[in-house]
Design a protein around this nucleic acid. Structure first.
Length: 250
DNA sequence: AATCGACGCAACCGCGTGCAG
DNA sequence: ACTGCACGCGGTTGCGTCGAT
């Protein structure tokens, strides 16, 4: 066999990437597209490990990567998904088109984590519960009954919050708003604001569920870290990525 | 103007997993 | 079944920047 390493580790360059290195990587990938990371650095004329090349491409050079400030909606998607999933950065990144897991992870550690420790006002935070790493430390009595994830890949799934991220796959796909209503009825989800918003999306001709990923959750803790309406109803729709991105898989 | 600490971000490291031989 | 490599993910580090003193 086997695939061989092409560089002595001692000769590999580390640290910040130069413009020239970036350009070599971009040129190579634009030209050949399909590669084996461990072999491509040599072919591209780079004295880097495949790992380093992959990281540079995935986190920085890949087309479609969005940089700069996170929107409020993105922040809330991160907060809600982190509450449900914990430090599953790649999963969270999949719900935020153009954002990388590394960027989300950095953003979490540098900004959002602190926000969780600082409830906005005294009245909004009735307890002085310290928030730790991982899923938000919400008192059990304050947990919403469950959160729902609709994914074209997995089908609808319910996270039962009392038991922390236990997934109950409902085993059927939702392709219509009526289907969603049935789901909510079956699961005793009360109709409220989020359903109205979802209906608009289902009825939008440009909206095709198989190409979308929806995340939403029941209104969050009454003990509250955030009580604004935009937080209580958080929804991220990932409808445009599959449509706009060329059908190329790296 | 110089120093220092906090912060943000890019990159590295180590580990788990999957796969080929 | 076993071995070893590549890849992807999450944790961590280190450097550059900026603001306070």
């Amino acid at each position: 066999m086997m695939r061989t390493l092409h560089f002595d580790k001692k000769t590999l360059k580390k640290g910040a990437w130069s413009r020239e290195e970036d350009q070599k990587l971009i040129n190579y990938i634009n030209k050949y597209r399909i590669w084996i990371w461990s072999e491509m650095p040599k072919a591209a004329g780079l004295l880097r490990s495949g790992k380093s090349c992959r990281l540079r491409w995935v986190n920085y050079l890949k087309p479609g990567i969005r940089r700069g400030n996170f929107t409020r909606e993105e922040e809330e998607t991160i907060l809600n998904m982190h509450e449900m999933l914990g430090n599953k950065w790649s999963t969270i990144a999949a719900a935020l088109p153009g954002r990388t897991d590394n960027e989300i992870k950095n953003y979490w550690h540098s900004r959002l984590k602190k926000r969780l420790r600082k409830p906005r006002t005294q009245s909004q935070a009735s307890s002085s519960t310290e928030v730790s790493e991982g899923p938000r430390n919400v008192p059990d009595s304050a947990q919403p009954p469950f959160s729902v994830c609709l994914s074209p890949n997995t089908g609808p799934a319910v996270w039962i919050n009392e038991n922390q991220n236990i997934e109950a796959n409902l085993g059927s796909k939702l392709e219509t708003f009526d289907g969603l209503l049935s789901l909510c009825e079956n699961q005793n989800i009360e109709e409220n604001l989020f359903l109205e918003n979802l209906q608009e999306m289902f009825e939008n001709p440009g909206f095709a569920l198989p190409q979308c990923e929806l995340w939403f959750s029941e209104p969050t803790s009454p003990y509250g870290f955030y009580h604004d309406p935009w937080f209580n109803f958080n929804l991220s729709v990932q409808s445009d990525m599959a449509v706009k991105e060329p059908n190329v898989h790296f």
